[in-house]
């Protein structure tokens, strides 16, 4: 069980299943708040990896349907881009 709790849900910011479940157990079930307290979905993957899993964890723990949980805003750029490419100083590999 303790091994299971160490499962990494957000690879960008090293957030574990245990940390997410602990917040939900404290009554924090809004994905917007979970995102900001644990920095889920704010790393280089922009939430592509973790957010679907976070939604399913919230749904399972709260009894909500995953459809009821609104995805947080998607930020641009869609994929990470070196700053130098955007100012025209370096070419994208």
């Amino acid at each position: 069980m303790s091994e299971e709790k160490k499962i990494i849900i957000c690879r960008c910011n090293d957030v574990t299943l245990e940390e997410i479940e602990a917040l939900i157990d404290q009554g924090i079930t809004d994905i917007e708040t979970i995102k900001r307290l644990l920095r889920i979905g704010m790393g280089p993957c922009q939430g592509r990896t973790c957010l679907p899993m976070v939604i399913s964890i919230i749904a399972r723990k709260t009894g909500k349907s995953p459809d009821e949980i609104k995805l947080p805003a998607t930020r641009i750029p869609v994929r990470p881009v070196p700053a130098g490419v955007l100012v025209g100083e370096i070419d994208e590999e």
């Binding site: 704010m42 790393g43 930020r75 641009i76 750029p77 070196p82 700053a83 100012v87």
Partner: peptide, 17 residues
């Protein structure tokens, strides 16, 4: 930003809001 810190040109931009 890249004029203040030139090395930033090699950093990836991940979010804008």
């Amino acid at each position: 930003a890249t004029r203040i810190i030139p090395a930033l040109k090699y950093a990836h931009i991940i979010r804008q809001w």
